Amino acid sequence: MRTRLLAATLTAFAAVSLAACSSSGSGTAASGTTGSPTASATSAASTASAAASTPAADATTAPTPAAPAPATPGGPASGTSSPGAADAPNTPAPPKPAPPTDAGLPTKPGNEATAKLVAALEAIDPAIVGGKPEQAVDRARNQCQSMYQFPKDRAKLVELANQRFTDAGHPQGFGTEKAEKIIDALRATLCPPA
């Protein structure tokens, strides 16, 4: 009987020591509620005396005190988000990346596609190509890029076509009517579909 009483007393002392240590820094008791170290020690002592009055099967078995609840001082409560977190509703969306500088610029066409393009341009006016098919292809590719950038601004596209497709006899371009036909021919032969 004395051995059991001694074991219960030591267990109570250990519980009081643990309760005092865990509550000295955060002001919380072993059960996770706020309280003073004295209240924790009193509850631990009552637990130990209850264990001493109950006969135990083995003198070395002692009740284990409850572990203190982990606390994160200064941290956000669970279920909340900190400012700037990915799931925060007030975080602005990242800006859209700028399109690449070659967006809408078709690749250099092969021989067959070049022949179709040159034939379409010469059908409008032979002076548009003027015996320089490579130059006409470069101008057409640049016009395709403008068509990609300004798909709904037909007036702008006509203006750019008149700036690009020039020759000695037509330094200001081939006019609105032919510029419209150039745009249509490029859509049919070289420019990627919009």
Rank of each mutant, 00 (worst) to 15 (best):
G35E: 13
T42H: 09
A123R: 04
G25C: 12
N142Q: 09
G32N: 11
R154T: 15
P89N: 09
I182C: 05
E177L: 14
G27E: 11
P83S: 09
T34P: 08
S81W: 08
G74S: 02
D125E: 04
K132A: 09
A119K: 12
G104L: 04
A86Q: 10
S24L: 14
Q163A: 03
A188Q: 15
E134G: 02
K108I: 08
Q149I: 01
A188R: 11
D153K: 04
S82H: 15
A140T: 01
F174T: 01
A103Y: 10
A136N: 02
I183A: 06
A85H: 10
A140W: 03
E112G: 11
V137N: 00
A88P: 06
P151E: 04
A161D: 00
A15I: 05
A103K: 05
A194D: 09
A88S: 13
A66N: 06
L117G: 00
G84F: 11
S146G: 12
A48L: 03
S36W: 08
R141W: 01
A140D: 00
T33F: 08
P65N: 06
T166E: 03
D167F: 05
S82P: 14
D58V: 09
Y148V: 01
K156C: 04
P106L: 00
P100E: 08
L160N: 06
G130L: 00
P83G: 07
A119D: 11
L10S: 13
T101N: 12
T3W: 07
K132F: 08
T91H: 06
A194V: 10
P76M: 10
S36E: 09
A179I: 07
R139W: 03
I124A: 03
G25W: 10
G32I: 08
A69T: 13
L121I: 00
T38M: 12
Q172A: 15
A15T: 07
Q135S: 07
N111Q: 14
S17K: 13
A123Y: 03
A39L: 12
G84E: 10
Y148L: 04
P37E: 04
A155T: 05
Q149N: 07
S46K: 13
G104C: 06
Y148R: 05
Q145I: 02
S22Y: 12
A12M: 11
A179V: 06
S26W: 07
F165C: 00
A30S: 14
S53K: 14
T101D: 14
A71L: 14
R141T: 03
A56M: 04
K156Q: 08
L18M: 12
A59N: 02
P192K: 12
G130H: 02
P55K: 12
A29N: 15
V137A: 01
A62L: 14
C144F: 02
A188M: 11
Q135D: 07
A29S: 15
R139V: 02
P89Y: 08
A85L: 06
